[in-house]
Structure formats: structure tokens, C-alpha cells
Amino acid sequence: MTQIHATAVVDARAQLDAGVEIGPYAVIGPHVRIGAGTRVGPHCVIEGRTTIGRDNRIFQFASLGAIPQDKKYAGEPTELVIGDRNTIREFCTFNLGTAQDAGVTRLGDDNWIMAYVHIAHDCQLGNQITMANNATLAGHVVVGDWVTVGGLTGVLQRMRLGDHAMIGFGSHVNKDVPPFMVVDGHPLAVRGVNLVGLKRRGFSVGRQAAVREMHKLLYRQGRTLDEARAAIAALAADDAEVAADVALMDRFLGSAAYGIAR
């Protein structure tokens, strides 16, 4: 059964599925929908047109669905959509989208979001992401699956973090980060390949070798980006096992509107 603490303020129009728990002094707005098994901690505020999936754990003092920190926002009916099985720790702030983009800020499934993380308007986050304490995403940022973002890292507007990338502690991300890469610093620099992460996710020796070769082609041979892309694409002709990884990298490099970390 749904459990709502006596001190919580839950609008009668909010939609709460079976098994939802709302803690003391939480505030739930009229356009909020929360899926089965999700637990909302004390003093959380969930407002706006916010949809939250199943089995999430939202810790105390989180603020989800507040209006964007964007002076152009004029009250448009934009959204925040959160998937299933996410952990959202203390003092996180996730904002609604804006009319200047798709109008939706989105977080996928199975993400681990630590304390004080800010996800600004129109950000699009995938699955299995880890964001450490005080990591901050400006508006319109895209984060792929299995990305790790170190604490106290700031990501500039409209940047993209490719699948399996790892961003080191205290970094200033002002370029797109290609898939599989490890970056850190200010200015941002590529340090190598996220081999530890790939091994943990079951990448075969052959796939790991292909990722290392992609890194070499991009960063160790003085090639232009177009030359590196062509050489990377050729890797798939030699080994069908790596075709999906090569295609992922090629798509990312082909759509890098603001340049990549190099």
C-alpha cells in the first residue's frame, strides 16, 4: 500500500502508484506521477510536470521538477522524466525542460546520482550512469550509458559525454568526450581508455583491443579528425565483433558540433 507520512503535503491530483512511500514534510505537486515502489525521503520537493518510474530511492532534501534556471523560461508546460531504479541522494536538483529544446529533461534507469548533483534543463541522461558529489550539468547536456562523472566536475552547455566515458574529479568539460575515453583536468585532457570500466562490463579482449586502437588513431598518430574517423571505420571490416563499438564511435565523432576533447 502507498504510505504517506502525516506531515507530508501531497496534492490530491498527484498520481501515486501502489507501494510508493512519501516521507515526513515532503511536498508533492499536482502534476507529479510516481511509479510503484519508489521511496521519497523527508523534506523532498517534487513539483512541475514530473514523472518518476518504479523503485527509485530519493533521499532527503532533493528538489525535482522546479522551473529551469533560464531567464527565457515563460511558464511553458515542460517536463522532467525519471526512469526506474535510480538512486538520487541528498540535495540533488533536477529542473524541467524548456521550450527552446525538446521540453523534457530526462534521466534513464539504474543511475547512481550522489549528493548535491545538479541536472539543468533539457539534459538527456541514459542508463547506468554514476555522478559523484557536486557534479553539475549545464543545460542541454547529453550523457550516454555507463558514464562516470567525478565529483566537483562542471559540464558546459550542450556538451556530450559518450558511452563508457569517465570524467575525473574536478574537471572542466568544455568539449565533447568521445565514448570509452578517460578525461580530466582544466583544461580538459584525454588520459587514456576506460579499460577498468570495460572489463567490469564484460568487454572481450578483442573489443578492448579495438577501443585501444581507436584511442591510438584519435590521439597518438597526429591524424586530423576526418582521417581518424576513416581509419576507425576500417576496424569493423577486420572484426565483426567490434562493429557496434566502431559504429558508436563513428556516430559520435560525426555529430560533434562543438569539437571533441583532444
Rank of each mutant, 00 (worst) to 15 (best):
D110I: 14
G29M: 13
L195N: 13
V104H: 08
F203S: 04
I88P: 00
I52S: 06
G37S: 11
V173S: 15
S204F: 05
D122M: 04
T153G: 06
L198P: 00
T38V: 03
V173L: 10
I119A: 11
A8C: 01
M166H: 07
R39G: 15
F180I: 13
G254F: 08
A240K: 08
T130C: 15
D84Q: 11
L225G: 03
R251Q: 14
T105H: 03
G126F: 07
V10I: 11
G197H: 03
H186W: 13
T153D: 10
L125F: 07
Q60E: 05
D55A: 09
P30L: 01
E79C: 11
A209I: 03
L218T: 08
I28W: 14
G192L: 06
D239A: 13
G23W: 02
G65E: 03
L152Y: 09
D122S: 07
M249S: 13
G53P: 02
D226V: 11
E47V: 08
L248H: 11
T224D: 09
I167N: 06
G29N: 02
S255H: 12
L235I: 11
H164V: 13
N86D: 02
L161Q: 03
T224M: 04
I113A: 10
I67P: 14
I260Q: 00
Y258P: 06
H164R: 02
I113M: 13
G37N: 08
R54N: 14
H172G: 09
F59H: 08
I129D: 06
R89K: 03
Y25G: 14
P77H: 10
F61M: 05
H43M: 02
G41E: 00
R89P: 14
D70N: 10
G206H: 11
H31E: 08
E21T: 01
Y116A: 15
D55F: 02
C44Y: 01
D84H: 04
S204H: 00
L64E: 12
G185I: 09
D11R: 10
G259T: 09
V183I: 06
V81K: 04
L217P: 03
L161V: 08
V211R: 09
T38A: 14
V9W: 10
Q3K: 13
L253I: 00
W112M: 03
A237K: 13
G151S: 05
L253M: 08
V190Q: 01
G162N: 12
F252L: 12
I113E: 07
V45H: 11
A210M: 02
L217F: 02
G41K: 00
A237M: 11
V117K: 05
P24T: 12
T7G: 02
V147F: 00
D226G: 07
V196R: 11
C123H: 05
T224Q: 12
L225W: 06
D110C: 01
A120G: 05
A257V: 04
A243S: 15
A36L: 03
N134A: 09
G222M: 03
A74P: 11
H186A: 08
H215R: 05
A138K: 06
R13V: 00
D245S: 15
C44M: 12
G170H: 06
A231T: 09
